[in-house]
Design a protein around this nucleic acid. Structure first.
Length: 871
RNA sequence: GGGGGAUUAGCUCAGUUGGCUAGAGCGUUUGACUGGCAGUCAAAAGGUCAUCGGUUCGAUUCCGAUAUUCUCCA
């Protein structure tokens, strides 16, 4: 059975059981600070389990794109070396939110696997939660009994809390889980060892394929468990593993999920897959990482140098490095594989197809830049190796390898490989020490101590009223203390709030909370965590139980609104001027300025930028009123023509904002009418990644200030240039004149020098067999330098000392002709230092030419007269 | 967010105890050879050594700040 059919049958099966089939949520997580990427199927439903969000469908099934590369689940370094770890994979899952429970979940799981997919029952084993003394939890006999309807009791295993009790975090919903394991070993091996003994022992052929989680408890802060009124089911089955089982393979990479990619890599590298172990690992790494990176880019996450973007960059670079080292790819190649992936998965994941060009471009650019990094690293490493060899040593210092890695991004294993080829070893111990120091520094800096959320009063809904009110009376529902870098701040949650929390690129509101007795708490920021609006405050209120007046800083809010609305107008104008391939890739809206990233393949021309700015300003002057569509279904919004962005979840009610022809889905705060923006000015247009441009712009007060600043600079220039009509031409003339004058000056100086040469030559005085010329000159130091260099070229066996005064400061110049300098009898540096004593100065230079400056011009003549004593 | 680098000609980069009249390769222009192109040879043009401040007799070089950028860690 083809993998595409497997996915479809899974979804069809649950659809028949009245499940709502929803699309995969984006792999990139935007509104949960504890998570960078979706790492399990349940992520997009977390808020429903927590009770922070209402349940829309009691039964849901989907396939979820997941990425496990950081945090608790970090498989990155394993990937490729074995047959079943992946960075990106699909998790098939079915959910019940307060609807069916263990009985149906178990029955359907069994039915799908054995009847629909036809998995051999004699190869299946079940684990159930075996109870835990410390938690006073009995075994999950309920599940065990239900399983016994389908499978013989001796194939059911009691598992530990570690394997069979699922918890989301330290507190919150949790419950026992039941796993289905399958034994894929050949029959002869199965006869030798019972598969039951190999369950949960990391055997690559006796593996878990489906985990059914029964959420029935709530873990409280004191560690105790209480039964939930609503019980949920959360299941997850690895799609790639399922394909392996159903296609009778022994490796995920042998299924049709990976084979097309692996074959394409084999063709590109002109080397077969399945022959050389090391090369196979490299090919698996590339195939896996390409999937992860392509999906991440499709979800709007570009490779970059921090946070989530950095994780993506690292994955891609790991693939490039394996290709470079083991398959001999020295030019970008991974981007060539994108069409294969799109062809294979683009039907079910249309975002891949839609962004294909972007993905190819971004990957290609990243490959190039990393290959450049490698090239610089290779030069540096060669230098290190040469030094080590020259010194007769055998070991490259760990600190040097670390510097290569840390500062220049050159991978350690490559350093080691090249060193080995040169008969050298790298001190791994020193490297690890340096790495530990680096980590310590970062940890010390990022050290944030967060206490538990303390609940002040129960209030499950925290409502945002800030669209209509900037001031409201509020009460504190929860708080916690946060310590970072010795500073103590407070997180407050309110029953209702006028503060807009950072979202959709718009940063959080600032303002104050004022208590009844006049105490003022500053609100420094507001952001969303697990669907709660957290207010970052500078201190704890003395009475947290009282009522407060929450006041949003109105001016900042207004400026932010201007910039947000201007962002929409900009988006609209860009599509009008450049074309509909322009899509938003990122956005930042602050009171000070706005930043808009969008897909476009080349630098914008000056005329295009102007056309965009003109269009935006035209829409501002047309003074379009804000039209708001609150809580409309997403399909309805699309019919209105709203541009949809990343991150909306299926079935959500959305908010759409319209100004004239610009309609966007947006939860942000906006100007009442576009006229309020006043003026829009683009400040910068730059590239941030291949195929992605960034525009930074300002509006209103800031734009006005910018305009006047420019105007004043221009006025000053005009005044300076005597009100020239054509300012640029006047400046050009000045520059031309300046250059001509400089040339004339040089020529004149040369003439003076020419005129002085013969006279100076005649002044030579022979002292102990050396000619000495000592003369005070009225020249600039440049001309004097010219002069003495000419003299030293034209003469032999001569010491030339020249003195001059420039800006009231005396200066000495000592030159030896080449033969005299080589003879070693004199050293210009030594001579100039001695003579400089007379002018209260010091100096130095090279053996044949040295200069000195000083503060006592009176002593210059004495210095010159002492020249012949230097012999 | 923290650490470490980088910024020198149009491009890629050299440039060590601070003083070598700032260099190389590629590219550009001109000339010569050639029937033309390609090519070879020769020559030339092209630099506020990122910006601002400090130390010094003297700063591309040392120190500090800013900007841009790379990279590692979180």
């Amino acid at each position: 059975m083809k993998s595409i059919e497997i996915r479809q049958q899974f979804l069809d099966f649950f659809q028949e059981k009245n499940h709502q089939i929803v699309p995969s949520a984006p792999m990139v997580v935007k509104d949960d600070p504890t998570l960078m990427f979706t790492n399990a199927g349940m992520n997009q439903f977390k808020d429903m389990f927590l009770g922070n969000k209402p349940i829309k469908f009691p039964r849901i099934a989907d396939t979820q794109k997941c990425l496990r590369v950081s945090g608790k689940h970090n498989d990155l370094e394993e990937v490729g070396h074995d047959t079943y770890h992946h960075t990106m994979f699909e998790m098939l899952g079915n959910w019940s939110f307060g609807d069916y429970f263990k009985e149906e979940a178990i029955e359907w799981g069994w039915e799908l696997l054995t009847k629909v997919f036809g998995v051999d029952k004699s190869r299946l084993y079940i684990t159930i939660f075996g109870g835990d003394q410390a938690d006073l939890m009995p075994a999950d006999v309920e599940a065990e009994k239900l399983w016994q309807k389908w499978i013989s009791p001796d194939r059911i295993i009691h598992g530990s809390k570690k394997d069979n009790f699922w918890e989301m975090g330290d507190v919150g919903p949790c419950g026992p889980c039941s796993e289905i394991h399958v034994d894929l070993r050949p029959d002869d091996q199965r006869k030798l060892v019972d598969g039951k003994a190999l369950v949960n022992t990391d055997n690559p052929l006796v593996i878990e394929i489906w985990n059914l989680v029964f959420i029935q408890f709530n873990r409280k802060a004191d560690g105790s468990l209480e039964a939930l009124p609503n019980k949920h089911v959360d299941t997850g089955m690895g799609f790639e593993r399922l394909a392996m089982v159903l296609q009778g393979k022994q490796s995920n990479y042998d299924t049709d999920v990976f084979q097309p990619l692996l074959q394409a890599i084999a063709t590109l590298s002109a080397q077969p897959y399945g022959v050389d172990r090391q090369k196979d690992v490299a090919m698996r790494v590339i195939a896996d990482h390409l999937r992860a990176v392509a999906f991440a880019i499709a979800d709007g996450q570009m490779p970059s140098n921090n946070k989530a973007g950095y994780v993506i960059r690292r994955i891609l670079r790991r693939a490039v490095r394996y290709g470079y080292t083991f398959l001999g790819f020295e030019k970008p190649f991974i981007h060539n594989l994108v069409p294969v992936l799109v062809n294979q998965m683009g039907d079910y994941f249309p975002e891949l197809k839609r962004n294909q060009d972007l993905i190819v471009n971004v990957i290609s650019e990243e490959e190039n830049s990393f290959l450049r990094t490698l090239a610089t690293g290779l030069t540096l490493l060669q230098k290190i190796i040469d030094d080590v060899k020259a010194g007769g040593y055998k070991t490259v210092k760990g600190s040097e390898a670390f510097e290569l890695y840390d500062t220049y991004g050159f991978p350690l294993d490559l350093t080691e490989l090249i060193c080995r080829e040169n008969g050298l070893i790298v001190s791994r111990r020193e490297f690890d020490e340096e790495m530990a120091k680096q980590k310590e520094r970062s940890r010390a800096d990022a050290n944030v101590e967060t206490s538990d959320m303390i609940v002040v009063r129960e209030d499950d809904r925290e409502e945002f009223v800030g669209y209509d009110h900037l001031t409201t009376t509020v009460e504190i529902t929860r708080y916690r203390i946060v310590k970072t870098k010795g500073k103590e701040l407070v997180h407050l949650v309110l029953n209702i709030t006028p503060f807009y929390a950072e979202s959709g690129g718009q940063i959080g509101d600032r303002g104050i909370l004022k208590s009844a007795d006049g105490e003022v708490i500053k609100v420094l920021d507001a952001f969303i965590e697990n669907n709660l609006i957290i207010h970052l405050c500078d201190k704890m209120p003395s009475n947290i139980h009282g009522k407060f007046k929450a006041i949003v800083d109105e001016k900042l809010r207004r400026l932010t609104a201007n910039n947000h609305t201007a962002t929409h107008l900009l988006h609209h104008a860009l599509r009008k001027v450049l074309g509909s391939h322009v899509e938003q890739k990122g956005s930042l809206v602050t009171p000070e300025y706005l930043r808009f990233d969008f897909s476009h393949f080349k630098k914008m021309e000056a005329e295009e930028l102007k056309a965009v700015a003109l269009e935006v300003n035209r829409m501002i002057r047309e003074n379009h009123q804000q039209e708001l569509f609150k809580d409309i279904p997403i399909d309805e919004a699309k019919e209105l023509g709203a541009m949809s962005l990343f991150g909306e979840k299926y079935g959500d009610l959305v908010r759409a904002v319209r100004f004239g022809n610009s309609i966007e889905l947006c939860g942000g705060t906006h100007a009442q009418s576009t006229g309020q923006i006043g003026l829009f000015v683009i400040r910068h247009e730059t590239s941030i990644a291949a195929g992605v441009r960034r525009i930074e712009a300002i509006t209103a007060d800031a734009a006005e200030a910018f305009f006047y600043e420019q105007h004043e600079t221009l006025s000053e220039l005009k005044t300076l240039l005597k009100n020239a009509n054509d300012l640029p031409k006047a400046v050009q003339n000045l520059l031309d004149q300046n250059r001509d004058l400089q040339k004339d000056l040089d020529a004149a100086g040369q003439k003076i020098v020419n005129g002085l040469i013969d006279g100076l030559k005649a002044k030579a005085k022979n002292v102990d067999g050396i000619d000495v010329i000592s003369q005070r000159l009225d020249l600039t130091s440049d001309n004097a330098k010219n002069l003495v260099f000419r003299l030293s070229r034209e003469l032999n066996n001569t010491l030339i000392v020249v003195g001059l005064v420039q800006n009231n400061k005396p200066m000495l110049m000592v030159t030896l002709t080449e033969d005299l300098a080589k003879s070693g009898r004199l050293n210009a540096g030594a001579v100039v230092r001695e003579l400089a004593k007379e002018i209260n100065g010091g100096g130095g230079g090279q053996p044949h030419f040295a200069t000195a400056g000083g503060s006592n011009a009176e002593g210059l003549d004495k210095a010159l007269s002492r020249a012949e004593c230097m012999i």
